[in-house]
């Protein structure tokens, strides 16, 4: 484990140092990452110029949901988002090069071209959360959940990316399918789930546990009843959901890797 972290940090540092050779480029891409994600908030702002509540939630509450999910998504994307380039690496033969090195191919994939400019998105989500939190006046006895939910969200999104990567061992020609789940998950969690249809909400609660990224714990933090009347206990289950999905993802990745090494394709 420490070995994996050491390898990760070493490779990430090397890529950041290489990117820092072109400071103007790095600055532009970081600012652009900030701006592009800021558009999603602009959309929320435009929506709330027309209404005071969306599916029962106020602007500050939606910003809270957006900020926590955005933070989880952006951090997971920075650290592990590159895993979704698997099919590119397989086609270019660079995945074989990773397999002949004495290091985990997963770590090598995740950190390849470590995209430091994505901190722009983390900053953007952080700013939104920082604006939303003071206005919500969350009591301290419930605020402990906020860091917990962000960490669980990071684990859930990382697991989704890993699943997306594992899927590409099968679908080398169509890596974009994974986007529907990774970026789709990022999009879904930006809004209160009460916006979506009941079946969709049940699906992202019990099948793809996106509801545990921010929705269920946020109901606890905001002290709100579940609009669908799902059990109260669910709002404390994010760590369990994150762990379960992480195990599934790890198994899928191993199966994919085994398949790759037994088919060579």
């Amino acid at each position: 484990m420490t070995d994996l972290v050491r390898t990760y940090v070493l490779l990430a540092y090397t890529w950041v140092r290489a990117a820092a050779q072109y400071p103007v480029s790095l600055a532009i891409t970081t600012v652009a990452a900030f701006l592009v994600t800021a558009l999603d908030v602009a959309a929320i702002a435009v929506i709330f110029t027309h209404t005071r509540s969306l599916a029962g939630f106020t602007l500050l509450e939606v910003m809270f949901l957006y900020g926590t999910a955005g933070l989880s998504f952006a951090i997971a994307d920075l650290l592990f988002g590159n895993v979704d380039r698997l099919s590119q690496h397989v086609r270019a033969g660079t995945f074989d090069a990773m397999l002949i090195r004495p290091a985990s191919p997963f770590v090598q994939m995740a950190v390849e071209r470590f995209a430091f400019h994505r901190v722009g998105r983390i900053a953007q989500a952080g700013v939104v959360l920082a604006i939303a939190l003071p206005g919500l006046e969350v009591p301290w006895r419930r605020a402990w959940m906020i860091p917990v939910m962000v960490v669980c969200g990071i684990v859930i999104f990382t697991a989704l990316w890993t699943l997306g990567g594992a899927l590409q061992f099968l679908l080398t020609d169509a890596p974009e399918v994974a986007n529907a789940f990774t970026y789709g998950g990022g999009q879904l969690t930006q809004y209160p789930l009460s916006v979506y249809g009941d079946d969709l909400v049940r699906g992202v609660t019990f099948i793809v546990p996106l509801a545990f990224v921010n929705w269920q714990p946020a109901l606890y933090v905001l002290g709100r009843p579940d609009p669908l009347g799902l059990p109260h206990l669910l709002r404390f289950l994010s760590p369990a959901a994150a762990l379960a999905l992480a195990c599934v993802a790890a198994l899928a990745w191993r199966a994919g890797l085994r398949r790759y090494r037994s088919t060579g394709s």
């Binding site: 969306l54 890596p175 974009e176 399918v177 986007n179 529907a180 999009q187 979506y196 249809g197």
Partner: peptide, 27 residues
């Protein structure tokens, strides 16, 4: 294959965004 995958992703996003717009127009 890539185009089909793209269509799938576009459809998923269409569904997600449609719900948001429905919520706004219901309000």
């Amino acid at each position: 294959a890539a185009a089909v995958a793209g269509a799938f992703t576009n459809t998923v996003f269409g569904i997600l965004r449609a719900y948001v717009l429905i919520a706004l127009w219901q309000a």
